[in-house]
Nucleic acid binder design. Structure first.
Length: 937
RNA sequence: AGGCGCGUAGCUCAGUUGGUUAGAGCGCUACCUUGACAUGGUAGAGGUCGUUGGUUCGACUCCAAUCGCGCCUACCA
């Protein structure tokens, strides 16, 4: 025996993965039906966070499962260039060194990013390896690699040629900090406290309202935008203002004469019923302005400072300073009617967290409706299926209301838009500048300038399934693995990614990108709160695997905190929650926990106690293997005649239930049920019962060589099956243990990875053996219950008397008698005649719960008390059992007394109730009998 | 405002077509270092399944209403 007494994850995990990778075990092999998953490409800026770790665990479980089932399994991996995120990171790093983008220029900056990617961007790949993910590294891709970039350009050009990409001046979400447009999806709308200012706008030309006022009142949450107002709108049916429509107001501070217009969009109930209209800085106002042909006055520069379209005194002011100034000036002018506290939705950029400004600029858009329609149909028709299904609603509702997609970003890192302008500003699109010239019929000497924008990072991600497999070439991989089988991802990127993949893939391959989308929940902390830097409640999967000290964790959580006060809170909390840091739980425990917690359609509260439990589970597996190996010297001793006991047949039969559940659960993406089945079988059937049941035989092996041999073979067979069944969840420990035991089974395999996942018919079903062992368990549990309740010392043996029961009980007893001694610490066993008067005993009654319903009298499991126990305790115990029994009996009697029940319920159900009734009466009778006997003493 | 989901033991969660004594893990209590494992063993306590109605012989399960929580989308002058 050369393995230690306790499971040490770091000792077994080191080196295993490298071996698998070196031996090419992750590459597709054989000629089975292809199976393919593409990895949701992590950003090169990412560290592997707990959400990735979760997602990778699920994907790897699927991959390993299908690989073991003989599928030609490809796990396509790669990373995303993460356009804005990466530019921000590298830009910040340069700035720390005092280098500004403008100083070094575009090309030098892009070179810096590539440098950074080569040095730092590889972290995530190392971490994926630590998770045990069996991805095919030989096929690793990057959204900016040459081939993938070619696919991106190809898609752009083809969409342009079809008129599905256009360029135009539109109001877009503008990030004044990053100085780029972003798409609707990249805007986070949060409720924030703010104010609502009410301004008086004087009517021009002496006009008055129906109420005789010489002004109208408008309300705004953004006073500075009034500098760009070009109308005041009222509802067409609003009697108060009907007479004003077509008249004008004088815009205060600016002095511009602007019309009063009527538009249905105005809600007469809100505020005064008058709305200021700023078509260049508000999406609703823009729509109104377009309808009414209003002037669009843009008052901001790219950084949201006020431009020259505003009166001189505001020019150059930051938007927030301009707001203060406008409010002050209005107040001074006596035009500030009111200010109230107001909660409003503030749009912020998801990367910069800056307040987004609707801003008029020239941008590139994808005309999305023609792409969305087939994508909606694909899901309606079931060509793409969401698991769980409810997420299809989310998909549909967004897709049916979808707006054109702004794909241009005013940044440097990313796929540069393949459009070129001649000196007159005409657009020439081409895969290369040379092609653009040819397509535009331009001579070589005509100066062309490429568009400076790059594409939204999600534009390229949308091509991920087919782009990674070689498109636009018609590669064998594309033919073999596309459409991919399943996409595993979180609901947070259904719109960003899933929907866009479906659209683009259908458009360019005519195929769906994947047949299923498994949507998993988000990992939250133990209290269910989102893990975030500002909360300081994040956990790094690597720290769970390798362990970390309290100080290390504090340092990590409080690094680069914007507010030092927050750092203090986080430190205190962290020290309270992790006074001893985090022990090294290992990858397997982490993975098992993820699988077990992956119940469908809900977020998971991540509790380290769960990890600890599954680490313990690994230890259990480890020691079960030690036990088995400890009883087998060499494979030779397994040769020879065997005689299987009911226990052997029982555990083999039980293993079938495990296998059935595993297959079914995985097919339904119920990783939790799968993991629980493995846990339950390994711990509570194999270890708790089967291993214990073999001990009487193994410890006396010399006396029953054939039974011992059968037990050893069964221990090995079932353990080996269990390891294979568990391997997709816990690859490291199963590989380690499998390699130890496989030689005893004559296996020459080099890895468990390529053994077959257990099939349901591998082990025989044996109902009779299951009944026997269930009977035995019931009797043993009954005795243990008596022992426990009456405080019989565990070291002390007891005698056992049985009485009553039927032929079946006697049969089971005959089969299992030899096992009772060790399991329940029973010394002598005697079966009393039905009419014999038992000595003073403690009794448990088994009335057919686990035995056949043919029993005609309750089986009394009796432990002679003699000096063992005090009568009071036993009396109390019996009274409690009688109470419970009577409660049950009353319920059943009520049911059976109900004529409706007897008449309408299915006969089988009625029969079951009758059986239960008889059983309860027998049990109760025996218990009462015993109680009165006790009282008589 | 619309949509989706959730409310089951102290905590985190299972509960597949309505019929179970409503389960698991962790936590808790008592006892135990017995020759795989104290990262362990044995036994035990703990739930009127959010609330109210309805359908049914029978509801944790189906329907309706209601309360609470979460998320998504839209709007918010």
């Amino acid at each position: 025996m050369d393995i230690k007494g306790s499971f040490d994850p770091s000792a077994i995990e080191a080196g295993l993965y490298e071996g698998w990778e070196r031996d090419g075990h992750f590459a597709p092999r054989g000629n089975g039906t292809p199976y393919c998953i593409v990895i949701p490409p992590p950003n090169i800026t990412d560290r592997l966070h707990i959400g990735h770790a979760f997602q990778h665990t699920l994907m790897d479980a699927l991959m390993r499962y299908h690989r073991m089932n003989g599928r030609r399994a490809l796990w396509q991996t790669g990373t995303d260039h993460a356009q804005i995120a990466t530019q921000m990171v590298v830009e910040r790093q340069l700035l720390e060194k005092g280098i500004k983008l403008e100083d070094i220029g575009r090309q030098a900056f892009i070179d810096k990013v590539w440098d950074w990617k080569r040095t730092t961007g590889g972290n995530i790949s190392r971490q994926i390896r630590r998770m045990g993910s069996s991805v095919d590294w030989s096929r690793e891709r990057f959204t900016m690699d040459e081939g993938f970039s070619r696919a991106v350009i190809e898609v752009f050009v083809r969409l342009w040629d079809e008129g599905l990409i256009y360029r135009g001046k539109r109001l877009v979400n503008w990030d004044p900090v990053l100085k780029t447009s972003i798409s609707d999806l990249e805007v986070d709308n949060n409720e924030e406290r703010g104010q609502l200012w009410h301004f008086r706008y004087p009517l021009a030309d002496g006009a008055t309202t129906a109420g005789g006022l010489d002004h109208v009142v408008v309300a705004t949450t953004r006073p500075e935008t009034m500098l760009g107002d070009t109308a005041v709108a009222v509802h067409p049916d609003d009697e108060r203002y009907r007479s004003l429509v077509g008249k004008a107001v004088t815009l205060p501070l600016v002095g511009r004469r602007i019309p009063v217009i009527a538009d249905d969009h105005v809600d007469p109930e809100f505020g005064s019923g008058c709305v200021k209209i700023t078509p260049a800085h508000d999406f609703d106002d823009h729509a109104i302005g377009t309808r009414h042909g209003l002037e669009m006055v843009n008052i901001f520069e790219a950084d949201a400072t006020v431009n020259d379209n505003a009166p001189p005194s505001y020019r150059g002011l930051d938007r927030f300073e301009a707001r203060r100034r406008v409010v002050d000036d209005m107040r001074s002018a006596g035009l500030l009617a009111d200010v109230e506290e107001h909660t409003l939705t503030v749009p912020r950029g998801d990367r910069s967290e800056a307040i987004i400004e609707p801003w008029l600029t020239d941008q590139w858009f994808v005309k999305i409706k023609p792409l969305a329609e087939p994508a909606i149909k694909a899901v309606e028709d079931g060509d793409v299926e969401f698991v769980p299904k409810q997420y299809e609603n989310m998909y549909f509702s967004w897709m049916r209301e979808i707006e054109d997609w702004c794909i241009s970003r005013q940044q440097w890192w990313g796929h540069r838009i393949p459009a070129y302008y001649d000196e007159s500003g005409n657009i020439h699109v081409g895969r290369t500048e040379a092609e653009a010239r040819i397509r535009g019929g331009l001579a070589d000497h005509v100066p062309l300038k490429q568009d400076g924008d790059v594409l939204d990072t999600w534009f390229s991600s949308a091509l991920w399934t087919f782009g990674t497999l070689g498109w636009p070439e018609r590669t064998p991989e594309l033919a073999t693995y596309h459409p991919t089988d399943v996409l595993v991802t979180g609901y947070d990127i259904i719109f960003f990614w899933v929907a866009r993949m479906v659209m683009m893939t259908l458009k360019f391959t005519g195929e769906v990108p994947f047949r299923k989308v498994h949507i998993h929940g988000m990992v939250r902390d133990a209290e269910g709160a989102k893990m975030s830097k500002t909360r300081g409640n994040g956990l790094d999967p690597m720290d769970i695997i390798d362990g970390i000290t309290t100080d290390g964790l504090v340092a990590k959580r409080t690094a680069n905190m914007p507010q030092p006060r927050m750092a203090e809170t986080i430190e205190a909390r962290t020290r309270r929650e992790y006074p001893n840091g985090i022990p090294a739980y290992g990858t397997d425990a982490l993975r098992f926990a993820f699988c077990a917690m992956a119940s469908q359609g809900r977020d998971l509260a991540f509790d380290l106690k769960r990890i600890e439990g599954y680490r313990n589970f690994c230890n259990k597996l480890w020691n079960a293997t030690r036990f088995v190996l400890g009883h087998i010297e060499d494979p030779g001793e397994l040769d020879g005649a065997v005689r299987e006991a009911p226990a052997d047949r029982w555990i083999r039969s039980r293993s079938r239930h495990l296998v059935d559940t595993a297959h079914r659960s995985i097919a339904n993406y119920r990783f939790d049920l799968y993991a629980n089945a493995v846990y339950e079988f390994a711990w509570h059937e194999y270890c708790d019962w089967y291993v214990e049941l073999t001990k009487p035989v193994l410890f006396e092996a010399a006396n029953h060589p054939e039974q011992a041999r059968a037990a050893k073979k069964t221990l090995l067979d079932v353990l080996e099956l269990l390891l294979r069944a568990a391997h997709p969840i816990v690859p490291f420990i199963t590989e380690t243990l499998w390699l130890r035991i496989a030689p005893f089974l004559g296996s020459t395999g080099h890895t468990i990875m390529h053994q077959s996942f257990p099939r349901a018919d591998e082990q025989p079903m044996d109902g009779d053996a299951e009944s026997s062992i269930e009977w035995l368990k019931a009797v043993v549990t009954a005795i243990r219950n008596v022992r426990g309740e009456l405080n019989v010392s565990p070291g002390r043996t007891v005698d056992l008397l049985l009485q009553g029961g039927g032929a079946e009980d006697r049969h089971r007893f005959g089969e299992c008698e030899s096992l009772l001694g060790r399991l329940a610490r029973v010394e002598a066993v005697r079966w009393l005649d039905d009419d014999a008067e038992p000595p003073p005993v403690a009794v448990q009654v088994i009335g057919g719960r686990n035995v056949g319903e043919t029993t005609n009298s309750a089986l009394k499991v009796m432990v002679p008390m003699a000096d063992l126990i005090d009568v009071g305790a036993e009396r109390a115990r019996l009274a409690k059992a009688i109470d419970a029994g009577e409660r049950d009996l009353r319920r059943v009697e009520a049911k059976l007394a109900n004529d409706n029940f007897v008449a309408k319920a299915p006969p089988a159900v009625v029969a079951k109730e009758r059986n239960k009734h008889d059983r309860l009466r027998r049990e109760l009778g025996a218990l009462k009998d015993q109680l009165s006997r006790l009282d008589g003493q």
